[in-house]
Design a protein around this nucleic acid. Structure first.
Lengths: 234, 234
DNA sequence: ATTGAAAGGCGCGGGCGCTGTACCTTTGGT
DNA sequence: ACCAAAGGTACAGCGCCCGCGCCTTTCAAT
């Protein structure tokens, strides 16, 4: 057989997540990224199972797992339901993650972030831009790292939304979920955050001007910083 | 519940491909993209099942499907095996594909191609550059569209290889597989191909200079052409 | 105080995909 | 003539997932 590098990927083992795993991953990531706010209520099990296109039995398995891991709390009765925990876990600080896998995630991040930035500059509307302005403001006023980080995540997903591409939003959410586990490991002095948010501000300005070229380049520079730090840890 | 657009994706139905479907997709795409050349031999069923991490029974189902669709042929006996058909189908000209799904694929393509181009400029080595030069040459000498197209696909996957990122290679392969179904529908006058290949040449030059900024921008312009044409069809 | 609706908590039968194993058949090299 | 290597076939079993029905808890409305 030829040693064609492109074929490496073709014959690689195929891992398919189960519905259970996928559901835990989706809901867990949404909670850890702050897309589902602490205390907010999820749809009823019957309704959510329907929306997700899975059986209630399977959904309940996923919910049980997330309750045990501290992401969710359930209560019974008339006004009962499933709620996001008040203090959900932030990130799975899986030290084993540092290695080959980390690089792969960072590479995907480059593609997703830069691609979203370029398309955002080409297509975004005013309401998305206002939203991004808002998030930049929130970051500049953040008192602690957690607040900053939450807004940061929303900003980057917001860029994908500005690109008007649902698939990119999904990809961005996944990438942010994985990269957050890494970012949680590194320190962030205030000076770095200020500089980072300055880049956010310039990005929005470039989106507004429709300058996809500079927006793409700036986004690449923006994310290069954390790459270097993480690279040092590996 | 809030109408947060980011949550749209979280609660969307989850459809997971089966191992059977995934295997058919992988092998079928590799064949249609020309990664597996006509007449070439696949590993034995037992070995391939082992490599893919699935049972032989399941692999056989996939192979049977691909035989019936004209991608593969099987022969028994001492020197038997499973071979790529001499004239495999080129693309699934699924006319139903034109619509919402087409845009989603094109968006992912922007991210994958531009991301790969940027990383290729940052990391590529001489051997990958030579490979890309070779493919550019092959395209310039192509007598017909099919030959050109095969080399074109290999070029773009080659960019992902130059980025030294296996995950991007996978992503690029998938994207090319889906976009090929669209590209097969549109005409390609020779003038367009010449211009397109000129861009390939300039891309390699930018990779060689390590100019990720211009490489990313040029790649975005490069793929914009087909976008416009396909947009016209939708 | 009663009732009913809306939510979570449970149990079970059945289907389908996938596995693993064993065995058969074909074919060409030794 | 034999044997090794490949595809072709059959079957028992397991795990995930579904769908259904039913129970329990709670609170709002009456």
């Amino acid at each position: 057989m030829e040693r064609d590098p492109a074929l490496k990927g073709v014959f690689e083992p195929v891992h398919l997540p189960t519905m259970f795993e996928e559901t835990v991953e989706r809901l867990g990531t949404a909670i850890r990224l702050g897309l589902l706010l602490p205390g907010s209520r999820l749809p009823s099990e019957r309704s959510l199972a329907n929306q997700l296109g899975i059986s209630r039995s399977t959904l309940r398995l996923a919910i049980t797992t997330l309750v045990q891991s501290g992401h969710l709390v359930s209560s019974r009765g008339r006004r009962g339901g499933t709620f996001v925990a008040e203090r959900p876990p932030l990130a799975e600080q899986d030290e084993e993650l540092l290695g080959e896998a980390a690089w792969a995630v960072l590479d995907l991040r480059v593609a997703t972030e830069v691609g979203a930035a370029i398309l955002a500059a080409e297509r975004c509307g005013v309401e998305q831009l206002d939203r991004l302005d808002d998030l930049v403001e929130r970051m500049s006023e953040a008192e602690n790292f957690e607040d900053y980080r939450r807004a940061d995540i929303r900003f980057h997903i917001g860029v994908a939304e500005a690109a008007r591409s649902p698939r990119l939003v999904r990809a961005m959410t996944e990438v942010q979920g994985q990269v957050s586990d890494l970012i949680a490991l590194i320190a962030h002095p205030e000076q770095v955050l200020t500089h980072s948010n300055e880049q956010h501000r310039r990005l929005v300005a470039l989106f507004r001007r429709g300058d996809g070229r500079r927006a793409g380049h700036l986004m690449r520079e923006h994310i290069r910083g954390t790459e270097h730090i993480i690279a040092g840890l590996i």
